[in-house]
Design a protein around this nucleic acid. Structure first.
Lengths: 341, 341
DNA sequence: GGTTGTTTTTACAGCGCTGTAAAGCGTCCG
DNA sequence: CGGACGCTTTACAGCGCTGTAAAAACAACC
């Protein structure tokens, strides 16, 4: 009984298929009595429209892909929540694509091996270079999220990472930190994210009148608290002295806090620490985490706006937008230096 | 140039559409030279198959829906990662459906307002009762995840929550806790999750020879660290004495740890604490969180197995499977009581 | 009553693909 | 050399829906 088709409804109601279609889709010019009759037939047959048929006929699926490396990373899951909610308001559902940060999977995202599935793609690349992104098949609209260097041809939204990193670095310096380390970038090839944040870190050091010390770059194996903790305790064991930590992301910062705690270092008294993303956990570390909070809502809104325009046919050069961020001050690097306890 | 169809490829290669289709899908019985010719045509036109057309013709979309309340809750995002990875190995992609724990959205999940979009649904209900789930339209196979009381007609996987809660409660008791509170269930109507865990908590108390004290039930407004922290500090302020906390989930436990820390209570010396889920953050709290770790891989595998069988036509009564869990011991309630510091 | 204009309904093609059934073709064997 | 068999390929219908264009029904007006 599950298989009622438009045709079946039409026959039962004694109208044409198209009229049923019109009723289903809420078309205005249907006489009330016709509409009622059709509706009854729909209910009787418990008809539900077939998405494949519809999308084949219309060329639209109502699906957007959301692609990034790993949904279990809190920043991405919070981003996904935000995008998913906003997308639903606009009548779209989300297809989740995890790339695990592999080149292969990221290539697959932009090469659109399958047409007609999604109407558009929101993509935060981790490793794919702008050159490869640029030659993506124009079949399906793409908007890029995040720090990757985007080709001019493609829409792109991010926050001003360099400025944010510079500001947060200067903030740590303003609290008296002289030897500020950077934690959590990749050991070998830098991700675009690490690259821009490191650039801002360096700029912030300069503005604060501090010099860059390569010993204070503490790379981590992966984006995880675990590896960041190892990096920090490793530096500690190696006798590297520091009194400030700019962490690549909150996950790294959480690992760093843990490592510092185990080493008996007090935060913020001995070392001040900052994170990045303001994931929900950042307010539950002890002390709370001072962090860069991107305006996620603006990011997602802007991205969806541009994507919808592309879907609607907009076909100009790529737009590159910056959205706001703010520094959130918590105990790990308070707004004003508290008297040391 | 984006719009090559099967027909176009067929013409260019001088074969029938069906042969092109066979090549695309890797059908075995195609002569090598034919295959090569077709492949060249595919490349020349940079043809990519249209998913809507295919799924209309085959009745399969290769999509599964994964539905739960909120992807930004770490347990769900870790579950999503796991399911997504396993699903991809089986040739499926994931559609993300957030219900926000609303009745309306959960109804929409099981009522299948749209047919043909997904081949199956994995659904962890938060509020929908088994009665309503039972009368779901049989159009699309559903497998239930988690603690909700599932109708016998529908497949279901979970861990033995009652036993797990009982064990963890007994563990806290074995560490000497006499007044063990439960933190993080809903204030008004209990979610199925809270219900079974509370039941296990009560059972665990009994087995440990402790009695249930209603004052030691500390409900929280929402599933969040924030509200759990408020519940705990509220109890504290109200003069409720406790020396153990069984938390409904890790998020609650993280909030509880924070509240205890602010109140100057030492963990595990003064109060022992347990969480639930073993989210990745659970090993980065200080102290680390003793918690119930469900075998996520087994859960997801089992769920996908059953779903695939349903998709393949299996049509018997619902299967109800339990997967393993284990207690992970960390500092918040160590395996053996350490000498008080 | 005829004319014009508007609203409502319809027939039909076709979106892009695959399943079916059957035809074509080459090979092997008696 | 004919027939049987297995491998390849094809024609065609149809999956369920919507856009188009045009017909039908109705309303308004002279």
């Amino acid at each position: 009984m599950a298989k009622a088709r438009l045709q079946d409804v039409a026959e039962l109601a004694g109208v044409s298929m198209k009229t049923v279609s019109n009723v289903v889709r809420g078309y205005v010019h249907v006489r009330p009595d016709t509409r009622a009759r059709v509706q009854r037939a729909i209910d009787d047959l418990s008809y539900s429209p077939n998405a494949s048929g519809r999308s084949l006929a219309t060329g639209r699926s109502g699906l957007l892909a959301l692609a990034f490396s790993d949904i279990s990373i809190p920043y991405y899951s919070e981003l996904a929540r935000c995008v998913s909610t906003l997308a639903r308001d606009r009548g779209y559902r989300l297809l989740l694509e995890q790339t695990d940060g592999t080149l292969e999977a990221e290539r697959a995202i932009v090469s659109a091996s399958e047409a007609g599935l999604v109407d558009g793609v929101l993509f935060q690349p981790s490793v794919l270079g702008s050159a490869e992104i640029a030659q993506h098949r124009g079949d399906v609209p793409v908007v890029l999220l995040g720090e990757a260097t985007a080709p001019i041809s493609v829409d792109h939204v991010m926050i001003d990472n360099v400025r944010a990193a510079s500001e947060v670095t200067q903030h740590l310096a303003s609290l008296g930190a002289k030897r500020i380390a950077f934690v959590g970038h990749e050991r070998a090839t830098l991700s675009p994210t690490s690259k821009v944040r490191l650039a801002g870190y360096q700029q912030g050091l300069e503005e604060a009148g501090l010099s860059l010390d390569m010993d204070l770059l503490l790379p981590s194996h992966a984006v995880s608290s675990h590896d960041a903790a190892r990096a920090v305790s490793g530096a500690f064991d190696a006798g590297v002295a520091f009194d400030g930590l700019v962490c690549r992301d909150d996950l790294a910062a959480i690992g760093a806090l843990r490592a510092l705690d185990e080493a008996g270092v007090r935060v913020p008294d001995d070392v001040v620490v900052s994170g990045w993303d303001d994931v929900s956990m950042a307010s539950f570390t002890r002390p709370g985490l001072t962090t860069v909070r991107p305006d996620l809502l603006a990011l997602a809104t802007s991205a969806l706006d541009m994507l919808e325009q592309r879907i609607a046919g907009y076909d100009e050069i790529g737009r590159h937008r910056l959205v706001d961020f703010e520094l959130v001050y918590r105990g790990s690097a308070p707004e004003r230096r508290v008297a040391a306890g």
